[in-house]
Write a protein that binds this DNA or RNA. Sequence first.
DNA 1: GACTGTGAAGCCATTCACAGCT
DNA 2: AGCTGTGAATGGCTTCACAGTC
Lengths: 214, 214
Amino acid sequence: MKEINIPKTTINRLSLYLKCFIELSESKINFISSSELANFIGLNPAQVRKDLSYFGKFGRRGLGYNVEILRHKISEILGTQKLWKVAIIGIGNLGRALLTYAGFKDRGFKIVAGFDNAPDKIGWEIDGIKIYSIEELEKIIKKEKIELIILTTPKSAVQEIINRLKNINVKGILNFAGKYLLADEKLKIRNVDISLELEQLTFFISNRNFYKRR
Amino acid sequence: MKEINIPKTTINRLSLYLKCFIELSESKINFISSSELANFIGLNPAQVRKDLSYFGKFGRRGLGYNVEILRHKISEILGTQKLWKVAIIGIGNLGRALLTYAGFKDRGFKIVAGFDNAPDKIGWEIDGIKIYSIEELEKIIKKEKIELIILTTPKSAVQEIINRLKNINVKGILNFAGKYLLADEKLKIRNVDISLELEQLTFFISNRNFYKRR
DNA sequence: GACTGTGAAGCCATTCACAGCT
DNA sequence: AGCTGTGAATGGCTTCACAGTC
């Protein structure tokens, strides 16, 4: 892979392209042009071409992009050709919902364990996924070679868990726990906040007349 | 409000500032400087000052920003001083989890209804929130003056629901349904895709050596 | 004829650097 | 002395426009 200056925004869109290519592939469509792709996602066609061109020359002039090839290629770039093992920490309502979330399967993620500290939850098995005591965190993560964590605990539990995760070989955290966390060199973190998403909607709704963009 | 050119990125950060100000307010801290705030979020202090300055002069030189005033002000800018009524369409695992999600209360959102088409779910009441048949969508939304929707149905149900929502007074949709939707003038949409969030993590993990930024 | 790949231009966002206030 | 508010400089991203290929 080229080592130079790929815009962050391009990486974000890569996931959207992948999603399109998966759908196109399921619809047995073989080729697609940058402008059709751009239409689906709401972008400028030149944007699509430039984005894809950072990683190689995948298109065929006069014809467009080969769906199967790009589906495979983008998945490779995003690192999801391999299967990532994921654990969910915090088996409340949201944790339980994500434990059985169907959307992970064909995107390269597999939930292999859940953790909680409520005695009545420990030992459960939901859809074949075992719930362990949080005391066993390090042990199970090592044993199962888990690299990604989905964090769905209450705010108050976050700091201790992060400290423990930093000492083992966990590489990334998807954080729903309501406490904004900063990533570092060793541990990538993405914060997801559902109220924040709603606020972004209400801003654009409330300021529609003043703020024309997007 | 000023009508000119506020960067989209600033609006995104506004929610993060708000979150900080809420926490600071709960910790009884009265003033905070741009550089402390920048540290919490992982930004440059000048960024913080510029962001806030788009909306007025809220700081006091030599002292920083008044936490209570900014908490109130940013919430006003984001449009969450008023209480927004929200309905959840699709009462599967995720819909049910969001129905009882505690994080909405103090951010200006109230879930007031759920919708599903499974006969065994209709008529339920979860945490005081009634589940209606999807046939009653228009009727209940009008009656309850619901303006925001959280969409947690299967992909296959999305298009019909969107068509119906466009005919009534719904203003925004937070879309978890796995089908990427484009917003338009009348209806703002934000797409949330949990696999996509994980993919963004795996990209930066897999390409750590080549891609130094962020 | 249709569509990609890409320098160059244009636009937008971030950061610097400092004047101005408390 | 400490910190904001902001023009100006820099840096990054998007779009244009067209040569090149099928």
